[in-house]
Design a protein around this nucleic acid. Structure first.
Ligand SMILES: [Mn+2]
Ligand SMILES: [Mn+2]
Ligand SMILES: [Mn+2]
Ligand SMILES: [Mn+2]
Lengths: 148, 148
DNA sequence: CTGAAATTGTAGCCTCGTCTACATTTTGGT
DNA sequence: ACCAAAATGTAGACGAGGCTACAATTTCAG
């Protein structure tokens, strides 16, 4: 099989461009878990006044051991603090991230609903989609919602 | 801190619903890598006539060792076959999945563009988003594109 | 005030996805 | 036909994220 030149397959992106896109998606994924945690912790603090590991675990559908381990990663990354047997608290960085993530989540849901996706489905899909929506796309979503 | 009842925090979903959504997003993520591989392999077969591990690795931006290991997972799951030093081939199941994934990818890009996201950005974001778009949402996207 | 239940924490195991380093096989230019 | 270069495959390490099992602490009902 002889090697084909780039020009002979104009339907595919260049190797470099494609590799870059896949790399982006991979790193978005690695941030996704932390984003969900800080958003959830922030929501729990706002609605029940505290975020306890067990609640976090139940809401995420994982074991409490898993939640605790991820929370320690949050601490390692400077997004949260906690003392033994006390709840989890977000640092300023953590709270700022939560804020951004919460807004993004809402915007994604709104966009999905605006293009005709049923509410529950929009909520469910947004939970995964949100982590892959760039700032540029978010801005486009805002514009679209404003002028539709 | 006394326990609050569900009714007192109407702004959050129930624990069960939320856990279910997060679980969905997690399993979508675990399928994402295989989806990207079969789509890429199928594209390579169509445009250059074969899919070799090194090409797959370069396009994904990972080492060839990583690509080979993931390809063996593809084989384990019945999506691909390969013989030593020959290229990779998709099974009927693999080809069917590739077809679905390719259509979904295009539809997601088209939807993003239709709501105003710039082309390159749409392509980049779609690479991650596509794996989290349910069939129901896809149908809504199709309708939206048809009648906009 | 006290002991059972709930919560929190720790330890150890697994799989997946990534890498580097090295070994083997195939390919292609002379 | 040969040998160097490219491609392919294998081995071993690591971190993330999940689990179960068990230990320690805190909370609360009686
Ligand atoms: Mn999410
Ligand atoms: Mn979210
Ligand atoms: Mn993808
Ligand atoms: Mn894709």
């Amino acid at each position: 099989m002889t090697k084909l030149e780039r020009a002979e397959r104009p339907d595919m992106p260049t190797e470099a461009a494609q590799a870059h896109r896949f790399g982006k998606a991979r790193s978005a994924q690695s941030a996704a878990l932390l984003e969900d945690y800080v958003e959830l912790i922030s929501d729990l603090m706002a609605s029940v006044g505290e975020a306890r590991p067990t609640d976090v675990a139940r809401r995420l559908g994982v074991s409490h051991a898993t939640a605790i381990k991820t929370i320690s990663r949050l601490k390692r990354e400077g997004l949260a603090t906690s003392r033994p047997y006390r709840g989890v608290f977000l640092t300023d960085d953590g709270e700022a991230l939560a804020e951004r993530v919460r807004k993004r989540h809402r915007l994604v849901v709104d966009l999905l609903v605006a293009v005709g996706v049923p509410g529950d489905c929009a909520e469910a899909d947004a939970e995964g989609i949100e982590h892959h929506v760039s700032d540029v796309a978010l801005a486009a979503f805002r514009d679209f919602l404003a002028r539709r």
